[in-house]
Write a protein that binds this DNA or RNA. Structure first.
Lengths: 398, 398
DNA sequence: GTCATAAGTTTTGGGTCGAAACAAACTCTG
DNA sequence: CAGAGTTTGTTTCGACCCAAAACTTATGAC
């Protein structure tokens, strides 16, 4: 580590502190937050401002007046954006998000991609990406592209297996045609990336919980374990496969080869079958049926909640994760399963006496496409230097 | 981060590189390993040598001769040691280990501590610690004390619950009387600390696997999840409770309040009962009976292996951990359960087709006391600066 | 004995931060 | 409305650390 990397670290710390604040901070605030001097904070902020990563805002008239020279509020710039893409069984999505967390463009195409061919789908996703990028002001910098897929992802953007798409061993990163001016995408698991939108409410801004288990998915159930704000991907990238936790070794057989997997109780198709509906009935239909008092639907939801409790108790026992966030199709039945789920957890979690695990329903904006964009923007926060090399942006005299 | 912490980081990196090498490295080797210049490596090494953290060894006569000035081999010093302590149900242990990994003193007292009082036990452990420290040469620096206990440990050295000792809510760190010249101990979970001896073969020297699941225990079954060489302790410090993973929701009741926990199949008492022996019969007796063809013992081992497979498959699915290390009393039946365990894992682990999880038996030296000492020594490696403040040790003219 | 080679050391220069003094911009008070 | 008080932002200076490069030392090869 040389003296130059001190600069890199401090730039990152100042930028992270700036993004983490709720109110736009001043240079002095950032000096305090990063425990450096105002002199150093000024030097670092000036470099970030010069390249548009941060911008100086007009003083807030609403702010209570205090003695002393008023500080200059600093806000995330809108010059740097990231592209977030998602392939789901039922749709393709592309979003453009800037460093402030504003969704600058969004486009979603509904489709049935079960058993589809990867190459044409990725070509269409490329066109979608091209489209959402087309309307950005000149000078905008795309810091990266994140691509979420519902399956096991290995190093180098290889999708090993996406059962519900019917894809296996697809070199997603290589097959995706990147829009002009952007590089190859970073491919990630859908659940991991959706979880990012819970651990961060905006790029670099921490969410309510640093540690939680996020559940996602539709037909299958994916999961992501977030510790200290970072998804745990595991040695080979396929950690978090909560859908195949054994609920009952004597339970129904699962496509994965095992028996009694959680997916066979709480997956959307299993849920619909148990409720006496067509397997392709959406989870919202089941929730509606249960709310209207349909006994079969109520029983199915109850059964799913108990299975979730058994499976998640295992995860909580093993990982000591205090919060469970229900996302994906489980959002629909979240409030319905919560009582039986919390009850089961309280009985089966060893440490429930000290700290009972909490169950929450994911916010509506929790999508993997957004999380993929956040993740790319977070790379800029981790090391801003690559984006501070260009010409200094014009800046009116003060 | 100021310019001075660059020094701290580089000292740590050089020391870590020096300890990680198999053969004693030279200054030039360390420069290459840490990708700095020889000039910088020299400055850093000189500081470490001046305080006895590293020592210059005599040139190795065995080494193949090469052109060029021969380098000076650098070895870990013996001046800095750590104290490793362990309270187990059946014994108390104290070891003193130096930075080279040499056990400088060891003492173990057998006892039955089930249902014991914490305070007198810790007093006796303090006396044991005093004893193992008594014979060290003057000038030896004790960098820290680690204390392993078989239970849930929270912040600040509080033991929340150790079911087999019968202790609960014991302020272990505060009650332990530290030997003269040492500070209060760092209290840790027995499984986590035993796992350290697998992830490091000596202080700072990485072991064979960076990621693995370590199983430990006796009556109960403890576990530790090691990712990237570090045990995962979880939000509140009680991650890794593999003993209470549900194997079968309809299984026998467990003392923890749940049913069908792994402990009820593979704990030493459960194992003995299933084999038709007295519950207090040691696991080695069961292993011996099984090896001699006793059908009940064979069945009990088989049952334990299957239960382990079901439970560990869950953990592997959720965490993507490629290696399982059987420690504690499971070492005794390790080779016996391996076939059925590996078979069960292959069937129940989702990713077994790509990478089948491996099962290993822990080495004989894998004790929590040793791991506790390693952990303390590792603090010196992480930040050597606090131990570089004293007077410079004498050093003959060269 | 001389040359080639590699390790270790010394010197020099550039980059970064902290401390402290200073300049700027505002509120408060009489 | 002027001056004191206060806080922010800037400038200057000094200290620290590393990289680069030249230099010294110690060995093997011929």
């Amino acid at each position: 580590m040389d003296t130059g990397s001190v600069r890199a670290v401090n730039l990152s710390r100042v930028l992270a502190a700036a993004l983490a604040q709720e109110e736009p901070p001043t240079r002095a605030d950032l000096a305090a937050a990063t425990s450096t001097t105002r002199a150093t904070a000024t030097r670092l902020v000036d470099e970030l401002v010069a390249h548009g990563v941060l911008v100086e805002a007009a003083p807030d008239a609403e702010r209570p007046r205090r003695p002393g020279r008023p500080g200059i509020p600093l806000q995330p710039g809108t010059r740097h954006v990231a592209l977030g893409l998602q392939v789901e069984v039922s749709h393709l999505t592309a979003v453009v998000v800037d460093l402030a967390g504003t969704v600058r463009a969004r486009r979603r195409v509904e489709d049935d991609l079960r058993g589809s061919d990867a190459e044409p789908v990725l070509a269409r996703l490329g066109a979608l990406a091209e489209h959402v990028l087309s309307d950005l002001p000149s000078g905008t910098v795309v810091v990266g592209t994140g691509l979420a897929v519902p399956g096991l992802v290995a190093e180098g953007g290889m999708l090993l297996r996406a059962p519900n798409l019917g894809w296996s061993d697809v070199a997603v990163a290589a097959l995706f045609p990147p829009p002009a001016g952007t590089g190859p995408p970073t491919v990630g698991n859908e659940a991991d990336l959706a979880a990012v939108t819970v651990s961060s409410t905006a790029p670099g801004r921490p969410g309510a919980h640093p540690d939680f288990l996020y559940l996602s998915g539709a037909t299958g159930i994916g999961g992501s374990i977030v510790l200290d704000g970072h998804p745990l991907t595991g040695r080979h990238g396929w950690a978090g496969e909560v859908g195949h936790v054994t609920v009952d070794p004597d339970g129904p057989p699962c496509a994965c080869g095992s028996t009694g997997c959680l997916e066979q109780y709480a997956g959307s198709r299993a849920l619909a079958s148990a409720a006496g509906l067509d397997p392709s009935a959406g989870t919202s239909a089941i929730a509606a049926a249960a709310r209207s008092g349909e006994p079969a639907a109520i029983a199915a939801v109850e059964r799913a909640g108990t299975a979730l409790g058994v499976a998640l108790a295992v995860v909580v026992n093993v990982l000591d994760v205090p919060v469970i966030v229900l996302g994906g199709h489980l959002r629909e039945i979240g409030e319905l399963v919560r009582p039986v789920l919390e009850d089961t957890l309280a009985r089966r979690v060893l440490s429930a006496g000290w700290v009972a695990p909490r169950v929450e329903v994911a916010p509506a904006h929790a999508t993997a496409a957004l999380g993929a964009a956040y993740t790319e923007l977070h790379r800029l926060v981790t090391d801003p230097r690559p984006w501070l090399t260009g010409p200094v942006t014009s800046r009116e005299a003060r």
